[in-house]
Design a protein around this nucleic acid. Structure first.
Lengths: 139, 139
DNA sequence: TGACCTTTGCAATAGTGTTGCACCGGGTTG
DNA sequence: CAACCCGGTGCAACACTATTGCAAAGGTCA
């Protein structure tokens, strides 16, 4: 039996590829914007909120996705790149939250130039969000 | 009757200096870390949650304070500098959220080197948070 | 004093995040 | 086969944050 790409992607992060997890991953792969728990609830109405919540939590814990805190009030989730460690400062990229359409986009190609923190502060990871209007809504 | 510094600071942002507002502003001035609504509730137990909530909202609307979204799940608020406009890219500074003591600090002196957004994206303001351990907790 | 406006307090609600517990199906072991 | 274990899932409940509606309090001004 052949394995789908997403199943392999789950296994490569040591996550059991269950039906829900594979579906959620597939869904996240197609999205251009980061997804919230509410998005998943809407889209997978046959699955339980808790299951989707724990699915996202599992993705976070295994480094498959990262969490973004924008001004929408609810956490968003986006897939990490294959080789992403989500740690500072290597994987520090910018997100853009559109206050018009409430979408949050990952600009993984947009690395932040490095800067120095005050002494003794030990960074672990970062959450950078620019708020404004996205290319679609600004038109 | 002489006016206190905080009363003048409120008036300079066109905010009526009521008792609650002046007290909250005084409190925020003394804090080294950003405050949450829950912090205010704890400290001003004689005032109502709603009043404190609306006080912060007023501060935001008049550019007296800015909002920070860290991983704590609740919004934090910190005073803006006198000349701050809170707009991109001039007032883009870094915040540090300590996952150990849950405090969030403003590094207003730490400007981000500039970078370019994709075309047509119209930025308004930013929310940059580094998570890790603060100088106190790292010891 | 009375009309008016702002501020404040109280109550209630929506929404998000989170946990406990029970069930189910699959694999394992006696 | 039966007893068991275990991860995943679903249901219910709860905590906490954010937010709104409405009524009371207080200040201002004619």
């Amino acid at each position: 039996m052949e394995k789908s790409d997403s199943e392999q992607r789950l296994q490569s992060r040591s996550i059991q590829p269950t039906a829900v997890r594979t579906m959620v991953l597939d869904y996240m792969i197609e999205q251009k914007a980061a997804v919230s728990l509410a998005d998943l609830e809407d889209h997978f109405s046959r699955s339980d909120r808790t299951t989707l919540y724990r699915t996202l939590k599992t993705f976070l814990e295994h480094g498959l996705a990262h969490q973004i805190h924008d001004e929408s009030g609810s956490a968003k989730y986006a897939l990490c790149a294959e080789n992403c460690t989500c740690s500072y400062p290597d994987d520090l990229h910018v997100h853009f939250y559109c206050s018009s359409c409430q979408n949050t986009f990952c600009f993984t190609e947009l690395q932040i130039p490095s800067f120095n923190l005050p002494p003794k502060f030990q960074p672990d990871h970062g959450n950078f969000v620019i708020t404004g209007r996205c290319a679609n809504c600004a038109a």
